[in-house]
């Protein structure tokens, strides 16, 4: 057993194996990083062309400029599309947060098959292809006599964002400790006060996350909006119509701004949610408690 031949062989095998493992690991890392490159190349491209001093969106690079950002303010159509789109989305967020949360609470507390069936029905518009939802709503609005414009778009967006809010809030509701609700009832709070003092505070971050998601979904939506819009366009609809006829770099500029704002919003939202989840992030809680008293 102690002869040199025997002791050398395993050593050789081990070094071969570890070399193979290193190579395999290198390949894995390379693949992993390649996917991120693939995911971010388009985003970086848009960002770069927002600062490129040329109306042609192609290489070579012709120098740095901020003129496209300045041009946003001068483009009246673009600006009015932006403000119209924002008002649509803010209305949608406000209504969807309340309605979606209400639906989640109702589904969570009701028993029997009815809430499950209704929930499944309400979710349908969030999963069918956009043009199918858009066309079916356009048909309905035409038959009922709802004119194309702000409200038709808002209703159309609510159809697919309310189920998103409902599902996000419902997921959180189902994870809540039922003994907290019982403790509250036990200590003298009725159903409504229990919701307000115990359940809702635990749902806040889920509702916030759902509201943010709703904001981006609504603000970005093109196809459904296309079916329901009147003469006033939302921002993505305006961008869409522009891309058909050659695209001006100021659109790169505005989507860069919107992208940056979105990312800042997610970072803030993630930090808020993390703080809620991580029990040892102290400061936020203390601040809230003072308000609570």
């Amino acid at each position: 057993m102690t002869s040199p031949e025997v002791s050398v062989a395993p050593a050789g095998v081990i070094s071969m194996e570890s070399a193979l493992r290193v190579i395999r690991s290198l390949f894995a890392w390379a693949g992993f990083i390649a996917v991120y490159l693939f995911l971010y190349t388009p985003l970086v491209t848009i960002g770069i062309f927002a600062f490129n001093d040329s109306t042609v969106q192609a290489l070579p690079w012709s120098g740095f400029t901020l003129q496209w950002f300045g041009a946003i303010g001068q483009n009246g159509l673009l600006f009015s599309a932006l403000t119209f789109g924002l008002s649509v989305s803010l209305l949608v967020v406000a209504v969807a947060s309340v309605v979606g949360t209400y639906f989640a609470v109702v589904v969570n507390s009701a028993t029997g098959a009815a809430p499950r069936v209704l929930l499944a029905a309400v979710i349908i518009p969030a999963i069918v292809p956009g043009m199918v939802l858009g066309l079916s709503l356009a048909i309905t609005f035409r038959l009922v006599g709802i004119p194309a414009g702000l409200w038709s778009i808002v209703i159309g967006h609510l159809a697919f964002t309310v189920p998103v809010v409902t599902l996000v809030v419902l997921t959180r509701l189902r994870r809540l400790d039922p003994s907290l609700t019982q403790a509250s009832m036990d200590l003298g709070a009725n159903g409504w006060r229990t919701f307000w003092h115990v359940t809702f505070p635990q749902l806040r971050t889920a509702i916030l996350a759902a509201a943010l998601l709703t904001l981006t979904l609504s603000f970005d939506e093109v196809v459904i909006t296309f079916f329901l819009a009147g003469t006033q366009q939302t921002l993505p609809l305006f961008i869409w119509s522009q891309t058909r006829f050659g695209f001006t770099p100021e659109i790169n500029a505005i989507v860069t701004i919107i992208g940056a704002v979105s990312i800042v919003l997610i970072v803030i939202a993630t930090r808020v949610i993390e703080r809620e989840v991580d029990p040892f992030a102290g400061t936020g809680r203390k601040r809230r408690s003072r308000r609570g008293r």
Partner: peptide
């Protein structure tokens, strides 16, 4: 994160690329 960037913009980027 890319999901939070406009779908339209992400598709348009491929046109540029």
């Amino acid at each position: 994160v890319p999901l939070w960037i406009s779908y339209l913009v992400r598709v348009y980027a491929w046109k540029i690329i």
